[in-house]
Design a protein around this nucleic acid. Structure first.
Lengths: 182, 182, 182, 182
DNA sequence: TATGAATGAGGTTTCATTCAT
DNA sequence: GATGAATGAAACCTCATTCAT
């Protein structure tokens, strides 16, 4: 991305700050503009679609997820690696209400997002393969299954309270084990 | 519900049929009217809100769920009862895209829906209590946890394909067992 | 009007009773039907238009007005006759919120209304002519002027409280005198 | 009111012009939009309610009324002042079919309208008090009585033809004199 | 580049009237 | 004759997006 003029950069920052104060599920660019004290046109210039804004809002979280996925893939203990990955993915998705949409979207606005997502999924694949090789997860589980499960558990936690997080996470983790291990 | 005049019943049926052909998540009463070949006013007379229509669309499924919940509560084997309940709940929610919304809504349009939901939850509670007493589920699980988990797994299945259903259901079922049982 | 079947007569009465409980200015035949516990179609059968209903509601008042106008025309004292007529017209119009519309409408639904209105206006004309001949009203005043003035004063009283009635009536009466009489 | 952008000012003017061609009593913002060749949303942006538009349509007339009321209050002759005020109020109300609604509404949209109305009524009060002190009006007349009478005479004139104006005005003016003055 | 007014399709809702029952 | 569901035009209003300023 080319360097922004300083006023453009300031607008962009104000827009992102404002958007963070609003409900991600019902984001409307008009509201963002009003909240940011900026014209609607300015919001559209920086973010042509709602999804582009959602991606931008999740940029930091995505970076964190990427870093964590690398650490998970590097963990010598496959079980620890998988647990680390799943726990942190769920935590991040719960913290960042737009992350699920970014991860699931087949169309990315920003190239950086596409790259990060690809590497995250690659790391995740390697984590899962290690775990499967170690016999600590069901052999029929795919990366997509796991990703969808995380989204499902996120959904379940959102239906209740944040306090439900540890329990529901644990249910998922326990459920992943191969039948033989019981 | 009092008996409908035959013409009213015909309209109601056409509206429900038309609504079934449309995406439950983005139902618009205008579209329903056009699709049903009926005046907008007629749709609004029968279903004052989108939610009222969604409820009506799920009436049969809700009845099925009620019947199953009774059978589950009556099952002498707590494990079978719980599995029956969870499997069928998930199946029905997957078949009926509006059921989750009906079950989760705190405000019911139709009295019959309120009644059915209450009895379903009561049966469910009794099923869970039996299972807990038999030591075959985590003791810290509440009915709400389970209901939310079913919704979460529904969400996960929808993100993938219907083929994922057995696996993801099994992951949930396995995850519900108490830690001690491993 | 031909004799009504007893049930039709009952419906008619219920409709008129119900209509009397509603605001004459915003009469809606649907509301009347609901209030009367009768189908909309029944209301339409009896009263094809809102105006037809308004006329029917004012039938008694119109009769009273007719009787008074005859007495006014028969009064040997032109001043008393005129005052009687104007005071009672205003009183009746204030009591019966639909009377002004009936009196002003160029199109009458019921023949009886047309007849009554014509005779009222004739009596009124004769009252005014006597008064003019006696030199107690401005010579340039027509019957229409007077009728409109009564409607205007009715409007003025309605903008305030019923207590304003005597004063505003008196203002009108005083204003009618010929300039010479001061 | 802050300065409008030139395009906004143009729209506003077109809307007001269009509205002037329509019947003030049955104004519908949709019709105004069509007539003005402007989107409905634009009309709603400028005038959130029909009343707001009616107020705006009467802005100039209200200014004129305010100016006249000041002159009336400043007139050394109480009779001339009162006559000036009443004649001009009636003239303006007859010319501007929405003025009566604006004057009578307890809820003003625009602050400027509220202010103008208050000052008009204050001037009017002072005019009436002078007249009363001079013994040239009935002592029991209040400002509200007079305002309502003007509305009533307006109504009466509208029921006939504009030619009735001088006569009906004169009737009102004569009627205001104290009984003693005859 | 930033602005925010304008757009106008399309949602919801209401209602006078009709007409099948 | 009575009923009230159906009609569908049309009102109100919102909103994502465009584009003149």
């Amino acid at each position: 991305m080319s360097a922004l003029r300083s006023d453009a950069a300031r607008s962009r920052a104000r827009i992102l700050d404002a958007a963070r104060t609003l409900d991600r599920a019902t984001l409307r660019l008009n509201d963002v503009a009003r909240e940011a004290g900026v014209g609607v046109g300015t919001v559209y210039r920086h973010f042509p679609t709602v999804h582009a804004l959602v991606e931008a809002l999740s940029a930091d979280t995505l970076d964190t997820m990427l870093a964590t996925s690398r650490r998970a893939a590097a963990d010598p203990d496959p079980g620890d690696g998988l647990a680390l990955y799943l726990r942190s993915a769920l935590t991040l998705q719960l913290e960042d209400g737009g992350l699920q949409a970014v991860l699931l979207s087949p169309d990315d606005e920003a190239e950086s997002v596409r790259t990060a997502k690809r590497e995250i999924f690659e790391s995740f694949t390697s984590v899962l393969e290690s775990a499967r090789a170690a016999g600590i997860v069901r052999p029929d589980l795919t990366v997509d299954h796991l990703a969808h499960l995380v989204c499902g558990i996120e959904h379940a936690v959102r239906l209740g309270t944040p306090d439900d997080f540890p329990l529901l996470l644990q249910v998922m983790l326990d459920g992943l084990r191969p039948p033989a291990s019981r």
